[in-house]
Amino acid sequence: MVERDRATGFFLGLACGDALGRPVEFQSAAQIERTHGRVTEMLADGTHGQPAGRITDDTEMALCIARSLAEHGEFVPEDIAARFVEWYESDPFDIGLMTMDALRQIRDGASWDEAGQAVWESRPEGQNAGNGSVMRCAPYAIAFADQPDRLAEVSRQSSAITHADPRCTAGCAIFNRALAGLLTGESRPLEVALDALGSEAPDELVTALEAIPDGIDPSALQSSGYVVHTLQTGLYHGLTADSAEDAIVAAVNMGNDTDTVGAVAGAVAGARFGVAGLPERWCSELSHDDELRTLAAEIATL
């Protein structure tokens, strides 16, 4: 059974990492240090020029999923794809290229299970395995925590709406299985997830995640938008830090794709430490704090 405090902590943790990282997205660690020293507070302006606590596409798309789950009580891919398209048409200030291309195709008539595949097949290696589905997929871990096979299936299908590369679809399944383990009190959530799903995942992804934690040199971690880097780095910080704040701050101050790596680390750390483990000064500034709490409670009871 999902622990309600952990479910709320995970959703708020995702948003906190996203919002803390937004103002310094695309900056290097050296640039962040020169400008801010160390980012530990919600900042206004910066990248995208938004107010402090403003979430990005990471949390906005996770909210689309959570709202659909709360309304239907089940995974309805057509509805989720339609919500993604509605969000896309609202002209968001931050959206990934693969996501934009797939949602444009769905808007123009492609089915939810065709668009992501077509976009993936059209892109060369190096531009076809971004982190745009991993960043948003975590609400499924709450809704299907007690149904591991269904959780893996839903995670893969939802990823494929925009990101059909096996590194993305398997990455979402493994990430959500690990999150579900944290939400239900498993002591070795990532190991359990890899034992269950690793044989079906690309070797590169499995090797990167099997190294956590003892096989990792923290100085060698990367914070790019590549899904393997995002998962390895976010899971490492989320699973090894002494507090949720330490995990998120460490992830964000690495630079580069700060909002998404921060969101992944924040989701993991929020599930580990619960809502009380997140700084209230961060949560009080989040642009969707109340809705995040409400939706976490609603989908935890599905």
Rank of each mutant, 00 (worst) to 15 (best):
residue 2 V to L: 06
residue 8 T to S: 12
residue 9 G to M: 04
residue 25 E to H: 01
residue 30 A to E: 12
residue 34 R to Y: 10
residue 35 T to E: 15
residue 36 H to W: 06
residue 39 V to T: 03
residue 44 A to K: 04
residue 46 G to Q: 07
residue 47 T to G: 02
residue 49 G to A: 08
residue 50 Q to R: 10
residue 53 G to C: 03
residue 54 R to H: 14
residue 55 I to F: 09
residue 56 T to Y: 08
residue 56 T to R: 07
residue 59 T to W: 04
residue 59 T to F: 04
residue 59 T to N: 07
residue 60 E to S: 05
residue 66 A to D: 05
residue 68 S to W: 00
residue 69 L to C: 09
residue 69 L to H: 02
residue 72 H to L: 11
residue 74 E to M: 15
residue 75 F to R: 04
residue 75 F to T: 08
residue 80 I to V: 10
residue 81 A to R: 00
residue 82 A to W: 05
residue 82 A to R: 07
residue 83 R to W: 09
residue 83 R to L: 07
residue 87 W to H: 05
residue 88 Y to D: 03
residue 88 Y to N: 04
residue 89 E to W: 01
residue 90 S to L: 03
residue 94 D to Y: 07
residue 95 I to S: 08
residue 97 L to H: 09
residue 99 T to R: 01
residue 103 L to K: 00
residue 105 Q to C: 09
residue 105 Q to T: 09
residue 108 D to A: 02
residue 108 D to S: 04
residue 116 G to C: 00
residue 116 G to R: 00
residue 116 G to Y: 00
residue 120 W to A: 01
residue 122 S to W: 02
residue 123 R to M: 01
residue 123 R to K: 05
residue 127 Q to N: 15
residue 129 A to E: 10
residue 130 G to P: 05
residue 132 G to N: 03
residue 137 C to Y: 01
residue 139 P to R: 02
residue 140 Y to L: 13
residue 141 A to V: 09
residue 142 I to H: 11
residue 144 F to C: 12
residue 144 F to E: 14
residue 152 A to N: 08
residue 154 V to C: 10
residue 158 S to K: 03
residue 159 S to K: 01
residue 161 I to K: 00
residue 168 C to Q: 10
residue 169 T to P: 08
residue 171 G to L: 04
residue 173 A to P: 00
residue 174 I to G: 02
residue 180 A to F: 04
residue 180 A to G: 10
residue 181 G to S: 09
residue 182 L to C: 06
residue 184 T to H: 09
residue 185 G to H: 12
residue 188 R to S: 15
residue 192 V to H: 13
residue 195 D to S: 12
residue 196 A to K: 07
residue 196 A to F: 08
residue 202 P to V: 09
residue 203 D to F: 10
residue 209 L to N: 11
residue 210 E to S: 05
residue 211 A to L: 05
residue 212 I to G: 01
residue 215 G to Y: 02
residue 215 G to A: 01
residue 216 I to Y: 03
residue 217 D to N: 03
residue 219 S to Y: 07
residue 224 S to V: 04
residue 229 H to F: 11
residue 230 T to S: 08
residue 230 T to D: 05
residue 235 L to C: 11
residue 241 A to N: 08
residue 246 D to N: 13
residue 246 D to T: 14
residue 247 A to K: 02
residue 251 A to F: 03
residue 251 A to T: 10
residue 252 V to T: 11
residue 265 A to N: 13
residue 274 G to S: 14
residue 275 V to N: 14
residue 276 A to R: 12
residue 276 A to Q: 14
residue 277 G to K: 11
residue 283 C to W: 12
residue 283 C to E: 15
residue 285 E to Y: 12
residue 287 S to F: 13
residue 290 D to V: 12
residue 291 E to T: 06
residue 292 L to M: 13
residue 292 L to A: 13
residue 293 R to C: 13
residue 294 T to W: 15
residue 297 A to G: 10
residue 297 A to N: 15
residue 298 E to G: 15
residue 301 T to Q: 14
residue 302 L to P: 09
